[in-house]
């Protein structure tokens, strides 16, 4: 990671990164949106979703982990990469069990919003249809693993921000799941409703109880504007 500002290009646009920034952070500051799901600005990067993969000097790498460096040539908004990103979002839709019409988070969901942004009309890859555990044992928070995309934000938030380690992973490959730091369920953990870990889920997997459907259709976060618009607006304002 560079200890001084560096200049590089994304899709031909020259941008300057502050010392220590990743490509994604520098792009955000410059008003260039690189699609992402597992990344969260207040957490260390996870490298799980791979949506933020860009080509750096011709080679694919995740921009959320890759340090900005002088003279890098980065490709981001290309048909090839957006095709791959759309397919990854599609994979997530058929891996979990996502029933948007009944989900409290619909309209505010980053997975759904990413599908809209990338123009995914219908997933046509084969569905996995695996049973996934629902945990409603906690008085204020529930975990609906049907909606989990294994982005690990909850685990990182719990560790890095809440200093608690309430969430982790278990299993490998397609059997990987979010796991809680208790013998049986979330109700036995010290998770609090105000914890960062209960707030950062991009989908409707980790949700506060008694808060669902609060925002009417038409006023939800992604009803009118694609995800990433707030970042892109900062560029057009410049």
């Amino acid at each position: 990671m560079s200890d001084k500002p560096v200049t590089f290009t994304i899709d031909g646009v020259e941008i300057t990164a502050k010392a220590g920034q990743t490509i994604l952070q520098a792009a955000d500051d410059a008003g260039i949106y690189i699609p992402r799901l597992c990344y969260h600005p207040s957490l260390p990067p996870g490298g799980h979703c791979r949506l933020c993969t860009v080509k750096i000097n011709g080679r694919p790498a995740s921009s959320c982990t890759f340090p900005a460096d002088e003279g890098l040539v980065v490709e981001n908004d290309t048909e090839e990469l957006n095709d791959h990103r759309r397919r990854i979002v599609e994979m997530l839709f058929v891996e979990g069990n996502h029933y948007c019409p009944t989900c409290e988070h619909s309209g505010n969901c980053e997975l759904q919003a990413m599908a809209y942004r990338l123009g995914l009309l219908a997933p046509t890859l084969p569905y996995f249809r695996c049973e996934r555990e629902l945990d409603a044992s906690h008085k204020d928070v529930y975990v609906d693993r049907d909606r989990c995309i294994l982005c690990g934000r909850c685990a990182r938030a719990s560790r890095e921000v809440d200093h608690k380690v309430v969430f982790g992973f278990e299993g490998r490959g397609v059997h990987k799941r979010i796991s809680v730091d208790a013998p049986h369920n979330l109700g036995e953990t010290n998770l609090a409703a105000a914890d960062k870990a209960a707030e950062v889920c991009p989908t409707g997997c980790i949700m506060l109880k008694r808060k669902g459907f609060a925002i009417p259709v038409g006023q939800r976060k992604y009803d009118h504007e694609p995800i990433g618009s707030e970042i892109e607006r900062s560029r057009s304002a410049k």
């Binding site: 490298g47 799980h48 994979m91 891996e95 996995f128 995309i149 490998r172 490959g173 397609v174 990987k176």
Partner: peptide, 20 residues
């Protein structure tokens, strides 16, 4: 499919789709 660690989506899910 069996050996994918599951960390990232394209390998975890994509390998299973290759299989199917």
């Amino acid at each position: 499919v069996e050996e994918s660690c599951g960390w990232c989506v394209p390998c975890r899910v994509g390998a299973k789709h290759l299989d199917i």
